[in-house]
Design a protein around this nucleic acid. Structure first.
Lengths: 248, 248
DNA sequence: CGAACCCTTGACAGAAATCAACTAAGGTGG
DNA sequence: CCACCTTAGTTGATTTCTGTCAAGGGTTCG
C-alpha cells in the first residue's frame, strides 16, 4: 500500500474513530491492488471475503437475473462497498466491476468481524455506515415505486444540480446507458424522456445538461429529501458525493 | 408492560445478547401501548423518537409521494421497525400504520443510542440486524428492477410456498391490494396477472392460492436466493417469518 | 338494511420495452 | 495519418405492458 493511502483510509467515517492499534491490525491483513477497466471484481453469489475500499477510479455495483442486468450503484473514491455481506458472512447480493482503471484496498472480512467486536467505537461507525446504506436503498426503492420514469429523471437532474451547488448546467458523471439502468429504464427510454424534458425546463447537449427553468423542473420532479436524500452538505458517508447513488 | 412481554422481547435477536443490566435500563424507559386498526403510528419525515417492537397485531410500512402511496413492508410479531432512523437520529423515511389492532412497545431512541455505545454485544446485534435489513431492501430493489410484474408475482408465490414448507396450497396472508402495492403494481394489474398465471401452473380461489404445476411456475419465477431470500429456516431476524417483506 | 370496501372485469389511454437502423465519436492497427 | 472497427447514443416503428377510469358483484360491519 502506498504511504499516502493509509491516512486517507484512516480518515473515512468508517475508520476514523477506531483505536489506532485496531486500525493498524485491520490494515495488517489488507492490501491494495490496481485493476484495469471493465474487470469483474465481485460476482454475486460468491462468499464475501473482503471489504473493498475504492482509492481511485470508479466501481459499478450491479445485479443480474435471468439474462437481464441492472446498475445498483456507482462507488467513487473514497468509498467502501459490500460491507453488509462481509458482516453477515453471507454471499454477495451484487456484482461489482471497474468502470475505469481503479485502485482498491481489500480488507479481509474475518479481521473486520473480529475487530468490531472488540472496538466499540468501530462498531458504532459500522452501525452508522450500515444505517446510512440502508436508508439509501430505501430511498432508491421509494423512487422506483412512487415515481414514473420521467419523474425519476427529473428528480435525479434536480438533485444533481443541487449537489453541484445549484448550478444551472453540469456534465453527466456517468454514461447515459448506466444512468438509465440505475434509474430503472432502458437507454432508449432515457434518451426519449430526456428530450421530452425540454418542455419541463431542461435542455441537453451531449453529456451536458442545462436547467433552463428550475421552477418548471421542480414542478415535475417534486424533490423530496425523503427520496432524493439530504440536500447539499449531508452526503451521508464519504467525503466525496456519490455519483449515482451509494448503496454498498 | 405485561409480564410475559419482557422475556419475549429479550429473546429477540436484537436484544438477546446484551447484558441483563443494559436490557433492564433499556426497558426502563420503554412502554407498551395498544393501538386500534388503521391507525397511523409514524409519519414519514417526523423525527425518530422511538424504536418500535410489534408484540401482537400487524403493522404496514408505507411511503408517500405526490399523492401516490406504496407498501414497503409488513411487520408481524415479534418484529422491530425503523431501527435505522433511530440510529441516525434522522427523520423517518417511511410511515407506519396498524393493519389490525396491535400492541407495540416503544423504546426511546436516546436510550437505544446510549446503550449500544457501552454494550459491545448489543452493538454487534444492531450491526447484524441492520445488515439484514439492508440486504432485504437490496433484494426488493433487485426484484423491482430485474423482474416484470408477472415474474414478481410468480416469484413471490413460489417463495411463499417454500416458506410454508413447499405446500401446494396456501392462503394469502395479506389483502391483495396490499400485496399489489408491495410488489409495485396496481390492484387491477395484480388481479389480471394472477388470473393469467393459470397458464403457468397457479390457480386461485379467493384468497387461496394453489400451485398446480410447480415446474411451470418455477420456469417463470426463476427463484433466486439472491433476490427472494434464503429458503426456509434462515428467516433473517424474527422468530416468525415476515409476511411480505421486512425492511424496517 | 345500508354503507363501505375489496375484488374483479372491461374499455381505453399512456408508458415503456423491443427490434431495427443509423449517426457519431473514440480507439486500434495498419 | 488514415481506414476500420467498436460502441454509445439517437430515432423510428411496433408491440407489450401497465395505469386509469368506470361499473358491478360480493362481503363485512355498523
Amino acid at each position: 500500500m502506498r504511504p499516502h493511502e493509509l491516512p486517507e483510509i484512516r480518515h473515512l467515517p468508517l475508520f476514523r474513530d477506531m483505536l489506532q492499534a485496531n486500525f493498524e491490525a485491520l490494515m495488517q491483513g489488507a492490501y491494495a491492488q490496481a485493476f484495469p477497466a471493465a474487470l469483474e471484481l465481485i460476482r454475486e453469489g460468491d462468499p464475501a471475503d473482503f471489504l473493498h475500499v475504492v482509492i481511485s477510479g470508479t466501481v459499478e455495483l450491479y445485479a443480474r437475473w435471468g439474462g437481464r442486468e441492472c446498475t445498483m450503484a456507482v462507488i467513487r473514491p473514497l468509498g467502501t462497498f459490500i460491507l453488509a455481506a462481509c458482516i453477515k458472512d453471507a454471499p454477495y447480493l451484487m456484482s461489482a466491476r471497474t468502470l475505469e482503471r481503479a485502485r482498491i484496498v481489500l480488507i479481509p472480512t474475518s479481521d473486520l468481524r473480529a475487530i468490531f467486536r472488540r472496538d466499540p467505537e468501530f462498531a458504532v461507525s459500522v452501525i452508522q455506515e450500515l444505517a446510512g446504506c440502508y436508508r439509501a436503498v430505501v430511498r432508491h426503492a421509494k423512487g422506483l415505486k412512487l415515481r414514473t420514469s420521467r419523474e425519476r429523471i427529473a428528480s435525479w437532474l434536480a438533485h444533481r444540480s443541487a449537489l453541484c451547488g445549484n448550478v444551472a448546467s453540469f456534465v453527466l458523471p456517468v454514461e447515459k446507458r448506466l444512468l438509465a439502468s440505475y434509474l430503472g429504464m432502458t437507454p432508449e427510454n432515457l434518451s426519449r424522456a430526456l428530450k421530452s424534458l425540454e418542455a419541463d425546463g431542461v435542455t441537453m447537449d451531449g453529456m451536458r445538461i442545462t436547467i433552463t427553468d428550475r421552477a418548471r423542473l421542480h414542478a415535475l420532479a417534486k424533490p423530496d429529501r425523503l427520496i432524493d436524500g439530504p440536500d447539499p452538505a449531508g452526503a451521508s458517508s464519504g467525503s466525496h458525493p456519490p455519483s449515482v447513488g451509494n448503496e454498498g
